[in-house]
Design a binder for these strands. Structure first.
Lengths: 219, 219
DNA sequence: GTCTATATAGGGATAGAC
DNA sequence: GTCTATCCCTATATAGAC
């Protein structure tokens, strides 16, 4: 998988397409706009990609690839499991913050926006990594029968919703998804939820640090 | 606000449009499909609605209206607050299950799918109802400084994601959003999360009934 | 109030010069 | 590898008969 972060017209197209696909959806995005955003003519796109659908799939593939890297990175290493859970949440949130478009695209994809393609399989494989980790750990520690899938899918939904939909739904409270305070607030909340779910039956249930700053006035 | 559940061509158009808009998004939905689904000719739609955009807004307006009714219904009455919280979650989940299309549409809307219109204001007003209820209750009970907005927005995101995206993301675990077991599982999980968040500092932290049936094998 | 027929526009994709 | 010009199709919307 090639690095998309530097030069090359092909790469610049991919990056521009990601933003636009995320913002307007597959059908809502016009090739004209992508081309304009890159600074080339529409016809030039067809030299690099066979079709709009092909371009979309390439963008999506790269998104899944990096997501998988992020998750695996947090899962590898020898840290104690409970610490890993925290790293996982942090890494995931950081990735969402760093690439909001990508997350928006994945949400759209899961709404059934575009040609299914190979995307679904890839997503399930990434999900499987986390499920496996949590399941094994849960069995090892003998924590009560938590619905591991529910925890994970719930977290993905929560985080995605915070950064993609909350600015529209609750602009007075969460106007800027890139704001550092907002990011910290989400991390704290999500970590707290996960810990409560997983440690629900343990001796000393972990709580996320409940800072007073978490309090926010009504709009 | 007229009742949409019975006869009338206009009403049948609204219902068909809701399903299609939810499934394919605003741009992805063709007026031809809506007409075909109702069993009339495309041109007839323009007798009932001024434009595609007008039709979309009408559908959306009705969705917000019923959502508001649901929330208010759960909030009214004299039940003890902690019980109300549970009713709120149940009522919300039930509504999502009863009208998956509506929820999908609202998620799409919050992704920025369509002409903003009056929708955003309406959504914020509904959200405000819940924020107010939880905030007042939290102050009264003196529970620790929870981020009320985070809890609510998180729950909305979780539930929406379970029923709209999970079937695509984790089909082996959550293939059928209408399955009774799945619905119960979601309710249990969400209620548990909310209780843990709100009762985090109370004397006897409430836990949702953790049935053994919640456990699910890896796919 | 619903139909058939048509106007008008825009989007994806191709041809072929440079 | 990028451009201009163009083909072809589909989508929204309108006109006007019944």
């Amino acid at each position: 998988m090639e690095d998309v972060s530097v030069g090359g017209t092909r790469e610049r197209i991919l990056r521009a397409a990601e933003v636009l696909f995320a913002d307007r959806g597959y059908v809502g995005t016009r090739l004209h706009e992508i081309a304009h955003s890159v600074g080339v003519q529409k016809a030039s796109l067809f030299h690099h990609f066979a079709s709009k659908e092909d371009l979309y799939r390439e963008v999506l593939k790269y998104g899944y690839y990096e997501t998988k890297l992020t998750i695996q990175g947090a899962l590898d290493g020898a840290a104690p499991p409970l610490q890993k859970v925290r790293s996982l949440v942090e890494a995931y949130v950081d990735m969402v913050v760093a690439h909001p478009e990508r997350t928006k695209m994945l949400v759209r994809q899961s709404l059934g926006d575009a040609p299914p393609g190979p995307g679904a399989d890839e997503a399930q494989r990434v999900l499987g990594l986390v499920v496996e980790f949590l399941s094994e750990w849960r069995l090892a520690t003998g924590s009560p029968p938590v619905d591991v899938h529910a925890v994970i899918v719930g977290v993905i939904g929560m985080v995605a919703f915070f950064f993609t939909s909350a600015p529209v739904l609750a602009p007075d409270w969460f106007s800027d998804p890139l704001n550092v305070d907002n990011v910290e607030r989400v991390k704290r909340h999500v970590t707290s939820v996960v810990h409560n779910c997983l440690a629900a039956g343990l001796e000393a249930p972990l709580r996320a640090p409940t800072t007073a700053g978490a309090e926010v006035a009504m709009a």
